[in-house]
Simulated scan of single mutants.
Amino acid sequence: MDLTPLPSPEHPNPYTTTERRPIYDSPWIRVREDRFRHRRGAEGRYAVCGFHRTACGVLALDEADRVVLVGQWRYPLELYSWEIPEGGGEPHESPFEAVRRELAEEAGLQARVWEPLCFFHPSNSSTEEESFLFLATGLSTAEGHHPEDDEELVLHREPFGQCLQRVLSGEITDSLTAMALLALQARRGGVAAALDPALAERFFQRPDEHPSAGRSRWQNLGAP
């Protein structure tokens, strides 16, 4: 079913930015502080976290409809987490190239069939991070790939329905995993919509070929 776009105000951006100041930069994240005036009169500061890499994940299903899960310790949460294979795409990689690499490195697998599944912003109040999720089937062993030196991973295959239950019970909390599972469940339930062609292209293009407005801002911090 074709959807008409949701309504948008005539002038949607209420902020006037007067200054942008970089605060921190690392190979993974960067932080800046913006000063702003809101059209309703408020003035303040807005801290924005940016990501050098693109968040990519793959819902890999085997012939028994089991989900390939990766278990690992998540340092910021101080918790062990079960997730789909995922990672950060380098600037020179398309999301598709990045997620194929992650599936091979983390799970030792390759897939015969790949489909874009979902695109979303995981935390849009504080970061411009973008997430690209794929569905992969026709799995087979990928030789010669290993996790990185700072990764200690455990593999497990779980029936799709049980994975959904674990998301809804709060046992699986990773946002990419939850979105991928719920997106596929919606598709299987008859909720289907084609990706916008411009967005669909971005699944197979490098980030600099289709930069978002939020991520482009980091290239020109001096301009308000």
Rank of each mutant, 00 (worst) to 15 (best):
S125F: 14
L181T: 08
D196E: 11
H52S: 07
A42T: 15
A198M: 13
S26P: 05
R53D: 07
V68H: 04
A47Y: 10
S140K: 05
I84L: 08
A213Q: 04
W218Q: 07
P211V: 04
V167D: 05
F132T: 03
G161S: 11
L109N: 00
W73N: 14
R202F: 01
W114R: 06
V48M: 05
V31E: 11
D25G: 12
G222T: 02
R187H: 05
N220K: 11
R37F: 09
S126F: 15
V167R: 02
P85H: 04
A183W: 07
A213H: 03
L181C: 14
E148D: 07
T16E: 13
W28D: 10
E143G: 13
E130T: 02
A183Y: 07
L199I: 13
R101W: 00
P122D: 07
E33A: 14
G88N: 03
W82P: 04
P116W: 01
F134A: 00
Q72K: 03
L176H: 06
A213D: 08
Y24V: 13
R37V: 12
R20M: 09
R188W: 14
E19K: 15
Q162V: 10
H121Y: 09
Q162F: 11
G214Q: 05
E130F: 01
F51K: 10
W218T: 02
S216H: 11
R100N: 06
P159W: 04
E106C: 00
T173G: 09
I29S: 03
V70A: 05
A111D: 00
Y80A: 09
E209W: 03
R45N: 15
M179I: 04
L79Y: 10
V31K: 13
F36V: 15
R21M: 12
G50S: 11
V70G: 02
S125D: 14
L109S: 00
G88T: 06
I84A: 00
S8P: 14
W73H: 15
